[in-house]
């Protein structure tokens, strides 16, 4: 049987992690092709609801890439992201999703190597976790309940 290939959606801050991924490319570093990046202005733009939606739509993991603490182009977006991800990870088990499927990583524009490593590591971790929703039924929770739980800061 072919090895399980996890699918990852990555929300990458345009100022840091997106540019870090560019640098991984310019440096011709190799990492597994399991990740599809989506460019966002800042990690603080990422809504927990997007993350949950991605996981429901078939993603096995979601990566959020932001600027290192103190480096956010908009001063504090990365701290906002950190708080939201922290809260989201507390809620995920109730939706039947392992919190480890969501990763927030700080990757600067000069850290191409780090970006490649983060992806490789995440892919390995998700391979070990296997496909999503093995045990519980994630679709039990209604969208309304979900948005009450996920929105608001």
């Amino acid at each position: 049987m072919a090895e399980f290939e996890p699918k990852i959606v990555a929300f990458l801050c345009r100022w840091c992690a997106y540019a870090g991924a560019d640098l991984a490319g310019t440096s011709r570093l190799k990492y597994p092709p399991n990740v599809v990046p989506i460019r966002v202005p800042c990690s603080g733009r990422v809504e927990p609801a997007w993350v949950v939606d991605a996981l429901r739509q078939g993603a096995d993991g979601v990566l959020i890439g932001g600027c290192h603490p103190g480096d956010c182009h908009y001063v504090s977006g990365n701290y906002k992201a950190r708080r939201r991800v922290y809260l989201l990870k507390k809620i995920l088990p109730e939706l039947g999703i392992e919190p480890d499927r969501v990763r927030l990583e700080w990757v600067s524009a000069s850290e191409g190597k780090r970006f490649a490593e983060v992806v490789a590591d995440f892919v390995a971790e998700l391979r070990a976790l296997g496909p999503i929703g093995a045990g519980s039924d994630a679709s039990r929770v209604t969208r309304d309940e979900e948005s009450t739980a996920l929105r608001g800061g």
């Binding site: 733009r45 809504e47 182009h73 906002k80």
Partner: peptide, 8 residues
Amino acid sequence: GCGACAAA
């Protein structure tokens, strides 16, 4: 255009 408000 950081989007922090939209996310919140």
